[in-house]
Design a binder for these strands. Sequence first.
DNA 1: TCTTGATAGTCAAGACCGATTACTAACCGA
DNA 2: TCGGTTAGTAATCGGTCTTGACTATCAAGA
Lengths: 154, 154
Amino acid sequence: MTATAPKPDLGALTGQLMRALQEELFETLGEQGHPDVRPRHGSVLAFLEPEGVRSTDLSARSGQHKQVIGTIVDELVSLGYVRREPDPADRRAKLIVPTEHGLDEIAKARAILATIEQRLEHTLGEQRFATFREAFQEVTHLQRGWRQTGNRPA
Amino acid sequence: MTATAPKPDLGALTGQLMRALQEELFETLGEQGHPDVRPRHGSVLAFLEPEGVRSTDLSARSGQHKQVIGTIVDELVSLGYVRREPDPADRRAKLIVPTEHGLDEIAKARAILATIEQRLEHTLGEQRFATFREAFQEVTHLQRGWRQTGNRPA
DNA sequence: TCTTGATAGTCAAGACCGATTACTAACCGA
DNA sequence: TCGGTTAGTAATCGGTCTTGACTATCAAGA
């Protein structure tokens, strides 16, 4: 630790936070009976619903290509976390439905994240954390739309 | 856009923000004469100093394994962004020193990030953004140390 | 001076992950 | 029924991190 930069840029900061969150989440999940879920599986598991969700919806929600979603679902099927069911409303489509094991993972992952947030809330203070949380959400939303609102004159 | 989850978890949020930041940063860098820098190069370029920095320091600052830093430096050397110089203080060590081209990239990257931050500041309001920025930094720092402060009783 | 343990950097193999292109089957409106 | 669109799959490629091992050097002490 020679000398820490006085003001790390937003990009570096975000990358460091994501890595740190992933480390705690997946390490703890491993200790709680889910040692074989990996970060990329989050693109499916984090957006599932008990009744099932279409691959295309998962793709839109997570921002991943639908091909990537396809391979992730393949893995999760063979690991016993989800199954594919035909969508009664559209014969082309399939619903990705969580199994019992999948529902357990989803619940545990949410609990771990909630614990992390509570720890942060406790340290930062309730008011400060709530403000941060809200601003974070808004910043993410804004930045996701930079192509429209940003500096695209010419 | 079927139905957006009411409160996306901190992990998903962070991932989305990072992706959005990367898109704008590297797309703009490409338009400004640096089309061949990629996100991973940030682990070196974002932490460089004009006088040079050791690989080990870059590793510690970025959180990447030193082997990864080594390959990134290889790439940046062949792209003309940095060069390796012997460290006069330690014959084992080498200093990673930015070239003119590298200094230009670093300056432009910082300017782009600064522009993004200014845009966010303008939308959120000066006070709110400053609070967010500060809390973000603290949250990242806290989460990076979860192994010490976290729930590690047994 | 000689030893010993730690540190700087590199090599090599393997696992992991996302992007791209192309294709089939089914939908839907004219 | 024709034609454009959408859901999902297949196959491949390039990029990225992880792990373990190894060499050279340093630094501290017997």
